[in-house]
């Protein structure tokens, strides 16, 4: 009997000792692994929240100090529509991600502008393409250096030539997007390295649709699909397609 009690006592002491107590927490590393893996799954297949910088989407998304929420369920271009803002893996810089707007889907037709072109189609647009004239005017206003050297007569001549110059530009080219590709362009046309630079983008490089951006702690803004393309009703047709009101008045 006494031997039996001794054995039991020894057993109890070993159970109370630290080594076996650890046995109760044997699953804790597993829990850590599960939390990490599900977090990774969430990040990879549902939503990614990450900082984003760069001027290519400026005016829609700020160029610094902002966070993007990317919906990864749209990965590889599933369910993407024209006008969506997407997050893409850059085809020219490894490990770099860009936010761009989808302009055309496979089989669609878009204007093939040159890279960094300020206006699609190359049309002269007041404000955008006449910056050289604006600089000249500011130069004249600042120092009158040009006016004094050229003389009033010549200046008047050059002004007259400008006003009578016909607005002509080269015929714009269009492109049909091949299968499995999309055409992406940044919203800031003059500062965006996009499909105009590297051509149609393979859909497999789309990582997801950017659904929200935050330029402060509590200032979230939506980038939902409805914000991209806007349907024009019949009543608006004349106003949108009509001649520019400013040029008509002149």
């Amino acid at each position: 009997m006494s031997i039996g009690f001794a054995i039991l006592g020894a057993l109890r002491r070993t159970i109370d000792s630290g080594l076996l107590r650890l046995y109760r927490y044997r699953r804790v590393p597993l829990y850590f692994f599960a939390v990490g893996a599900s977090g990774s799954l969430f990040r990879e297949y549902l939503f990614t929240i990450d900082g984003a910088t760069g001027p290519s989407m400026y005016a829609t998304i700020p160029d610094a100090a902002n966070f993007l929420c990317v919906n990864r369920m749209y990965g590889k271009g599933h369910g993407i529509k024209v006008g969506d803002v997407v997050q893409i893996a850059s085809p020219i810089f490894p490990k770099q991600y860009n936010g761009k707007r989808v302009i055309a889907l496979p089989g669609d037709y878009v204007l093939r502008s040159k890279s960094y072109s300020v206006a699609p189609g190359g049309a002269p647009v007041p404000g955008i393409t006449d910056w050289k004239q604006r600089i000249e005017e500011e130069k004249v206003a600042a120092g009158q250096a040009v006016a004094s050297s050229a003389g009033p007569v010549e200046l008047m001549k050059s002004l007259a030539e400008d006003s009578h110059e016909e607005e002509e530009w080269d015929e714009p080219e269009m492109i049909q997007i091949p299968e499995g590709h999309v055409w992406v362009e940044g919203d800031n046309l003059a500062w965006s390295r996009d499909s105009r630079f590297f051509g149609p983008l393979p859909m497999a490089l789309i990582k997801g649709r950017s659904s929200w951006f935050a330029d402060g702690l509590f200032s979230f803004s939506s980038l939902k699909p409805g914000r991209g393309l806007r349907k024009i009703e019949k009543e608006e047709l004349d106003a949108v397609l009509g001649v520019d009101i400013v040029s008509e008045a002149e």
Binding site: A119, I135, N188, G228, R230, I232, V240
Partner: peptide, 20 residues
Amino acid sequence: CELYELVQYSCTTQEEIEQR
């Protein structure tokens, strides 16, 4: 076909900033 519009932006170019 239905007409849609998309608003994009064109900001001051690198060239203009250099010239200025």
